[in-house]
Write a protein that binds this DNA or RNA. Structure first.
Lengths: 212, 212
DNA sequence: GCGTTTGTTGGCACTCTCTGCCACTAATTG
DNA sequence: CAATTAGTGGCAGAGAGTGCCAACAAACGC
C-alpha cells in the first residue's frame, strides 16, 4: 500500500485551518503589543493579554509558548514581506528600481496601525531584554531565508561562507535602516519617512553590491 | 567643594572586589554549563545549579538574573579575548599573520576544559531556545565592539552604515567559523581543529577585505 | 434526529523562575 | 568594644508555563 495518501476517512471535527489560526495569533499579537508599549513587557501579565484578547489564559499560552513570542506575528509579517520582495527581484533589474516598484505598494497595503505597531516593537527591543532576544532570533531566521535567496542567485550552495557573509551584510543593512526609521517615527510615521527608509536601504544595498 | 572626589571616609565592610565577583560568577557558570550539557537547560533548575556551586539559591539568583545568563561568563571570555586580539591588530600587518602570532597563544593559555565548555554551549544554542537568545545578544555586543574597532581603523564615526555592515560581515565570519569548529569538536578538540579554525577565520576575513 | 469521533477550549493544580523583605553574619574603622 | 556597611540565606509570594481532564464544537454515518 502507498503511505503517500494513506486514505484517512476523515471523521470527527476538522482541525482549524492554518489561516484561521494565524488570524487568531495576529489578533492576540496586536493586543499584546499595545499592552507592551503602554506598560512595558514585564508589567504585562499573560492573564492580562488573554483577557484583552478575549480568550482564557490557558488558550493564550497554547497560542504563544512564551510571552515575548507575542511580537512574532507582527514582526514576521514585516520580515516575510520584505523577503518576498527580494525573492521576486529579477536579475536584470537594478535593486533600487525593483524596490521602488514593489516595496512601496507593499507598505501602502499594510495598515498604518500595523506599521506603527511594528516600529513600536522595534523601539521597545532596545530597552526590553526579552523582546530583544525574540527580535534577534527572528532576524536570524530572516537572514537564513536571505542566504537561501542569495545562494540561488549566485549559483552556489546555501552554506558557502561568502553567501552567509553577504546575507549577514544585507541583513545588517536592513537592521540599521529599520532602527533608523523606528527612531525617526517616534512621533508618528509619514510617507516621506517611509520613502526615505526605502531609499536608504536601496543606497546601502547598492553600495554593498559595489563592494562585493 | 569638588564633587569629583567627594572624600568618603569609607567606613564598614568594603565591597567585594570586581575580580573576586567575576571569579565567583565564572565558577558558578562552569557548574551550570556542565549541568546544561548533561541534562539540558529546561531540566536544570536554579536550585540545582546553586547546590552544585555551593551557594544558596537566593545568592545564585543575585549573581545571575536569568538562568540562561549562566553561560555569559564563559562565552564573554571567549568573545572578549578575540576582540582584544583584533584591537591589537597593527595596521601594517596582514591579519592572518597577526592571528597566527596572537590568537594561537591565547587559545593555548585557556584550559581545555573551558574551550570544551564554550564549544558545548555553542552546540547547545542550536537546540535550546533560551540559550540561543542569550548567545545572540552576546554576539550583538561583540559586533558593537567590533564596529568600534573598525570605525577607528577606517577613520569614520562609529555609526556609519558601512562600518556597521563591515562589522556585521566580520561577525558573520566568526559565527560561521565558530559553529564549524563546534560541530567538528563533538568528539573532543584537537590542536589541528583549532588551527584549522584560525586559518578558516583568517582566510574568510582576508577574502572579506578583498571584497570591501 | 441519534451516537461516535476528533479537535478545541477552559479550569485547576502544580512546578519553576525570579523578587522583595528581613534577619544574620562578615569585614572594616574608631 | 560599638558602629557601620556589605554579602548571604531563608521565607513568602507573584508570575510563567505545563499536564490533565471535563466540557463543548463540528464533522461524520446512521
Amino acid at each position: 500500500m502507498t503511505d503517500v495518501v494513506a486514505e484517512k476517512p476523515r471523521r470527527g471535527r476538522p482541525p482549524v485551518s492554518d489561516e484561521q489560526r494565524q488570524r487568531q495569533r495576529m489578533d492576540i499579537s496586536r493586543h499584546a503589543v499595545r499592552l507592551f508599549t503602554e506598560q512595558g513587557v514585564a508589567a504585562t501579565s499573560g492573564e492580562q493579554i488573554a483577557q484583552a484578547a478575549g480568550v482564557s489564559e490557558r488558550t493564550f499560552w497554547r497560542y504563544f509558548p512564551h510571552k515575548e513570542s507575542c511580537v512574532e506575528p507582527l514582526l514576521t509579517k514585516m520580515v516575510d514581506a520584505f523577503c518576498v520582495v527580494l525573492l521576486a527581484w529579477p536579475p536584470e533589474l537594478e535593486l533600487i528600481d525593483h524596490l521602488r516598484e514593489t516595496y512601496s505598494p507593499l507598505l501602502d497595503s499594510a495598515t498604518d496601525e500595523d506599521i506603527e505597531a511594528v516600529l513600536a516593537v522595534v523601539r521597545l527591543t532596545h530597552g526590553e531584554r526579552a523582546l530583544r532576544a525574540a527580535y534577534l532570533m527572528l532576524r536570524e531566521r530572516a537572514e537564513d531565508a536571505l542566504a537561501e535567496v542569495l545562494a540561488e542567485r549566485m549559483g552556489k550552495p546555501r552554506d558557502t561562507i561568502d553567501v552567509r557573509v553577504q546575507a549577514a551584510a544585507m541583513s545588517a543593512v536592513l537592521k540599521v535602516a529599520t532602527d533608523d526609521v523606528a527612531r525617526a517615527s517616534v512621533a508618528g510615521i509619514t510617507r516621506s519617512t517611509l520613502d526615505g527608509h526605502r531609499e536608504q536601504i536601496a543606497t546601502a544595498l547598492r553600495g554593498l553590491s559595489q563592494m562585493l
